[in-house]
């Protein structure tokens, strides 16, 4: 093989690998990205049922209920709108009423949200920034403190 051919093979391989990588990334970007919404966003934007999304907000005080088994019902609120959520499984340690929460799942045709993953972070005063930003918009959260419209704690 001549020098030129060698260079060609090298550059060719690089281009092929890069091309494949770019293709994969673009494909994955389209299909596996999860958007983050607050209950108000969902009310406004008509998110299609079945689409995977993340829902963030505060767990409404007094809304947590359980059935006989392992399913939990609670509501997520951003102060303006409330969305009922069902979840089957073990809740994280710091899941508390009146605290911030991020759930991942999809909307059901009946307008409730079915979560398969509930995240509450490991800090008592922790507010997921996505949640904090959304709550700021609705005025429930100011300067790192809840203004008390949602919690009665």
């Amino acid at each position: 093989m001549t020098r030129k051919q060698r260079r060609g093979v090298l550059i060719g391989t690089c281009l092929v690998v890069l091309g494949v990588a770019v293709g994969l990334v673009l494909y994955a970007m389209r299909d596996s990205i999860v958007f983050f919404y607050s209950p108000s966003d969902i009310a406004k934007m008509e998110v299609a049922p079945g689409q995977r999304i993340r829902l963030g907000g505060l767990v409404e005080t007094g809304s947590v209920k359980r059935d006989e088994g392992t399913t939990v019902y609670f509501s997520v609120t951003d102060g303006a709108k409330v969305l009922p959520v069902t979840y089957t499984g073990v809740l994280p340690d710091l899941f508390r009423e009146g605290q911030g929460v991020v759930t991942e799942g999809a909307l059901m045709p009946d307008g409730t949200f079915k979560a398969d993953n509930v995240l509450a972070k490991h800090d008592e005063n922790y507010m997921p920034p996505e949640v904090a930003a959304k709550l700021k918009e609705t005025g429930v959260w100011r300067d790192g403190k809840l203004t008390g419209e949602v919690t009665t704690q």
Binding site: V17, V20, A21, L24, V25, Y27, A28, M29, D31, S32, I33, V34, F35, F36, R54, E104, E130, A133
Partner: peptide, 18 residues
Amino acid sequence: GEKISVGAPFFNLTFVPL
């Protein structure tokens, strides 16, 4: 200003085949 999360599905689709 749009908030998204890129989780395991993305990396499974891109990193693993590479």
